[in-house]
Amino acid sequence: MMKSEENDCTSEKVELQTLNTGDTFKVAGYEWIVLNQFKVLKTCFCIMKDFLGDTKPFDTYCNRWEPSRLRHDLKYIECEIEDNCHHDVLQYMERNLMALDGTMANEISIDKVSLLTLDEYRLYREYLEYPTKFPGHIEWVLLTAVSEENRSAICAVDTCGVVKQCYCAESFNIRPVCTFRSDVLVERVHS
């Protein structure tokens, strides 16, 4: 095999449910990594492989997800995916908003596009390398607030995979998560 052939990525159309954890696929111009297949619910939990093109703050003053500027900004990803697929392919997912210190334990949010929680990051960490397309030392933000009392601190992951506490108004790299219907046709990416 020639070197140029080795570096070419090939793709094929498959149902999402045929992919395994860690597999990569493409929808609406974005590459996604399968994190979990929920066979009973017929859904697939996925994260964007790379960061969005622009860094963004979580919010100006507050680490709470529901009123955050970032939550509002990410709605365009939902529109892009569903416009590209011509039908309702994203499922609502219940997001646990418990803070790092255990406050906000009973708070949830229902979203189609969100971020990983700290617990999910720990669970799926082996599939989540820091994308090489985006050089620099900017953390990528998680959904988990540090504390209800300290409303300006949010959890983020640095380039080495270490979870840090950061000021929510900083610029972060963003890796959205979505739950897709598992019967949707996607482009499987082989590298």
Rank of each mutant, 00 (worst) to 15 (best):
E15N: 06
K133C: 05
G29S: 03
L118G: 02
R181I: 07
V27S: 10
D183V: 03
D50H: 05
R69N: 03
A156I: 08
T132Y: 03
E5S: 15
K56P: 00
S4A: 15
E6W: 15
V177G: 10
E31T: 00
Y76K: 02
G22P: 13
L16D: 04
T103Q: 02
V113R: 02
R125T: 07
V40A: 09
N20T: 09
R95L: 10
I174T: 02
N36G: 07
N63E: 01
K49D: 00
V157W: 06
Q37M: 10
G161W: 04
E170Y: 06
I33D: 09
S191I: 10
T55E: 05
K49R: 05
V14I: 14
N63R: 01
E5H: 13
C79H: 04
M2Y: 13
H86F: 10
W65R: 15
V184C: 11
Q91S: 08
T18A: 15
M2W: 13
D88L: 10
A28S: 06
T21I: 09
H72N: 07
I77V: 12
I33M: 11
V27K: 02
C155V: 12
Y30L: 06
M104D: 14
K133H: 07
N150W: 13
N63K: 02
L143T: 09
D8Q: 12
T43E: 15
L116Q: 00
Y130D: 13
I47E: 11
N63H: 01
C178R: 03
C85D: 14
E187V: 00
L118Y: 12
T10G: 05
F51V: 05
E139A: 09
K133V: 04
T21H: 11
L70H: 02
C155R: 13
R151C: 15
T144F: 07
E149M: 12
C62L: 13
D183Q: 09
V184W: 06
L19K: 07
E66S: 14
T10V: 09
V40T: 09
M1I: 08
I110C: 00
C166W: 00
Y167L: 14
V89Y: 05
F51P: 04
Y61L: 13
K112F: 01
V40I: 08
H190K: 14
V177K: 06
N106S: 14
E107K: 14
C62V: 12
R64A: 07
E66F: 12
F58N: 01
